[in-house]
Design a binder for these strands. Structure first.
Lengths: 334, 334
DNA sequence: TTGTATGCGTTATCAT
DNA sequence: ATGATAACGCATACAA
């Protein structure tokens, strides 16, 4: 027995003021068609009896909900960061965010269903791992934007940052410092990892260093970074190691230091994501920012264009990542 | 013009099967009063035409929504962790979580309003910074549980971990290792910080070490940890430093190392929260876990007791924190 | 077991 | 500018 005291309704306000509820509706929604006089009286009465519009009821009849569903894995710092920027951007565009959290007990499919049940008009999927055809099936139903994953399907908008270019800028940075022997610790199978890996190989080729370009397999974890360095210790250490993300970079740094090498004096290290970790003074990791705020702005822009502007052709927005140089990189020892 | 293709309704299913929508309603809700025969036919038809109950409409008439609102600051790793556990626990109890994210652009008051608008039956506030009377005002309206903050108001349930005891267990650990000169870097004003500070002082007194108990002021940031160590370097380094949270502990560690001291050889360091950071191999920080999963379970238990069990007296649940010993603490140098 | 009727709080259409 | 009224999709008491 949830002690639910009956909320005042629009009718209550109307009765109090002595007008029709239709008029109250106009005033509450800030729609034109009510005199300033009445408007004030209605607002005052509403305030007084503590009236708040019943969103559930409003959604029943309203054409629009102005709700945007966002699927994210909040345990990921990067996702959480983007979500923050999304609510701000949505706010500016006159929309509200409904957040669907992906957790071990709530998989992506279920989150999407829930979001849809809440009558969201558009869907923003952050780093979805759902099969492309399932995403496409959703996108056929409602405006959908995929954030941070390369995927081309009709009906689908994509906002992401160019992972290949991000890695390339890091390679350029290291080469500029004089490095010639660079290894990459990748993130395993998966689109993102693949993009970063090929970005690395391509950039190395561009610098005429294909021969020294080594790739060690990993999986985006700290442990993977440590394992990779163990391998490299056996095979012969490069002068710089570029990791597929910050976590593995931190693992790599740690393993190196435990082996008696110092960063960046003996080996330079780069990460990816420009996470909170990378920014820590005690870690101070050169990393690549995916520009979460930019991505958030573009994603909101994309849905809103479809929702308010009537756009129907898909659009892909690829942002340039930004290298953030910190203390984990320096010129190689001679 | 959001291309909203009309969703199939209960009537559509009813028409297809050739029954009334009331009957369909029974079947969908899994309520008794329909033959197994019809049940199957209805379910099949629903499946076929892709029918999903319109939650908005259902909420209009249903007594219950089985929705629990959670206010959290997802940029906080600790909050994010608890949220994950909450959705799992809610799931087991037959409820669904509506997540309200507190961000720089959406303050706590606004989030609470939104959650209420979504017709949540209960509210879970994680680490609220709202004034106690505002929280009480909400709690007067609907079952409310405050997580992680000490506060006593009528109508209010509280689930938290005993910060004082957590710090005390860390003190005991250090004293057991032989430390006699211990400093505490606090987290500024605020309930949580105060609890940890007094917990420290009390534990030190218990060990007869009030004289050597020093408190340096901080603010839960990495920078605060660094500043605090700078102060201590001038005043004379203790053999152990207990920080109010992991962030400031990391700042402290870093500052010490830059000054040429090593952890834990010269100085032992402890943090608080047992965050992802503390668990990193390269940081390996002795810390105190607030047991997020336990807290989540208890919080759900509390609302559900009020919602389903009809409990009305407030209840406060104080959990025992768990010390997690890692590599940042060791016996003092002689 | 099944169907009918009514209400939920709001928005939207059409009068006035 | 204002009001009456019909949806909206579903749950529920009640009738059959």
């Amino acid at each position: 027995m949830p002690a639910e005291r009956p909320r005042p309704t629009m009718q209550d306000v109307a009765d109090k003021v002595g007008v029709s509820k239709a008029l109250v509706s106009l005033v509450i929604r800030n729609a034109p068609g009510a005199s300033a006089e009445t408007r004030k009286r209605v607002l005052d009465a509403a305030e007084e009896i503590g009236y708040r519009v019943n969103r559930t009821a409003a959604l029943m009849t309203a054409k629009r909900s102005h709700l945007i569903g966002v699927m994210a894995k909040i345990s990921s710092g990067f996702h959480a960061e983007i979500v923050e920027d999304l609510v701000a951007a949505a706010d500016r565009a006159g929309y509200e965010i409904v957040l669907g959290a992906v957790t071990p007990t709530h998989d992506e499919a279920r989150v999407v269903e829930t979001l849809r049940d809440f009558r969201c008009e558009g869907l923003l999927l952050i780093g979805p791992e759902l099969p492309a055809r399932e995403i496409e099936a959703v996108a056929a139903t409602m405006p959908t934007v995929v954030i941070g994953r390369r995927i081309t399907e009709p009906n689908l908008d994509v906002v992401r940052s160019a992972d290949g270019r991000g890695i390339a800028s890091a390679v350029d940075h290291l080469v500029g410092l004089g490095h010639r022997d660079i290894a990459h610790v990748d993130g395993g199978t998966g689109t993102i990892s693949a993009d970063r890996r090929t970005g690395f190989l391509r950039a190395m080729r561009r610098h005429g260093m294909s021969d020294s370009a080594r790739v060690v397999s990993g999986d985006f974890t700290e442990a993977a970074g440590m394992r990779a360095v163990s391998e490299l210790l056996d095979a012969g250490l490069p002068t710089a190691i570029m990791c597929a993300n910050d976590y593995s970079a931190i693992g790599a740094m740690d393993r190196l230091r435990r082996a008696g090498f110092s960063v960046p004096e003996h080996v330079s290290i780069t990460g990816y994501d420009n996470s909170l970790l990378a920014r820590l003074g005690s870690i101070d990791l050169t990393s690549v920012s995916q520009q979460p705020q930019e991505q958030a702005d573009r994603a909101i822009e994309a849905v809103v264009e479809r929702l308010d502007g009537g756009r129907t052709e898909p659009r892909s927005t690829v942002l340039a990542p930004a290298l953030v140089v910190r203390g984990s990189t320096a010129g190689p020892r001679r």
